[in-house]
Simulated scan of single mutants.
Amino acid sequence: MTSANQGGGSLLAQPLQRPSGPRVLAYLGLFMLGAVVGAAGALVQGGWFPGGLLLALAGAGGLFLGGARAAGGRGGAVAPAAGWMVAVILLTASRPEGDFLFGAGVGSYLFLLGGMAIAVICATLGLGRQPSGPDVRLGK
């Protein structure tokens, strides 16, 4: 037995490497796109109450899952979700003038909690580190 197999580790495990330059740029782009979708969703969800809320959550979910599929891993869902959360948290803070974007209604709370739940679901459903291809044989 090899020493890697004695500890219960997989022989296929590889150490983590730094992401490449294009991948970092893609994650930064997804982060910024998540911030834009969060700000747009904050405006839409209050405008047309049940339809706007569903549209804002569907847009966020589509971005999170699409980012995971495009990047080929969970990081593609985490990057836009982080941008979405930063934008939404910054928009919920009240300013010294007393203005704020979110009202104290049930729609605002559903947008905040629903968006976070969708982000977790999409990051969980994101593609793992399994090889994909027609000639890959798993389990042997």
Rank of each mutant, 00 (worst) to 15 (best):
P50F: 06
A87Q: 03
R23V: 15
G115I: 10
R69E: 12
A58L: 08
A35W: 08
M32L: 15
L112M: 11
V36H: 02
V106Q: 08
L25K: 01
R74E: 05
G52Y: 10
A39G: 03
P80L: 05
L33C: 07
G98T: 06
R95N: 13
A58I: 07
L91H: 12
L112V: 14
G73H: 13
P96S: 07
F100M: 03
G105D: 13
T92A: 11
A42C: 07
G76R: 11
G107L: 07
V24N: 04
W84K: 00
P22T: 14
G103L: 12
A60T: 04
L54A: 13
V44S: 07
G66H: 06
Y109M: 11
R74W: 10
L57S: 07
G114S: 00
I89P: 00
G62S: 09
E97C: 05
V86Q: 04
L57M: 09
V37T: 13
G107V: 07
G59Q: 06
A60I: 04
G83C: 03
M116Y: 09
R95A: 14
G47C: 11
L53M: 14
G72Y: 03
G52I: 05
A56T: 05
L30P: 05
L101W: 07
G76T: 10
V37M: 11
P50G: 02
P50W: 13
S108N: 04
G114H: 02
G47V: 14
R69F: 13
R95H: 14
G114M: 00
V36Y: 12
G47D: 13
V88T: 11
G72T: 01
A39D: 05
L53I: 08
L63I: 01
L53A: 09
A93Q: 15
R23I: 13
A58R: 02
A117H: 08
A68R: 00
A42Y: 10
A87F: 09
P50I: 02
F49G: 12
A26P: 01
V86P: 01
L65C: 00
A71Y: 09
V24F: 12
F111K: 02
G115E: 08
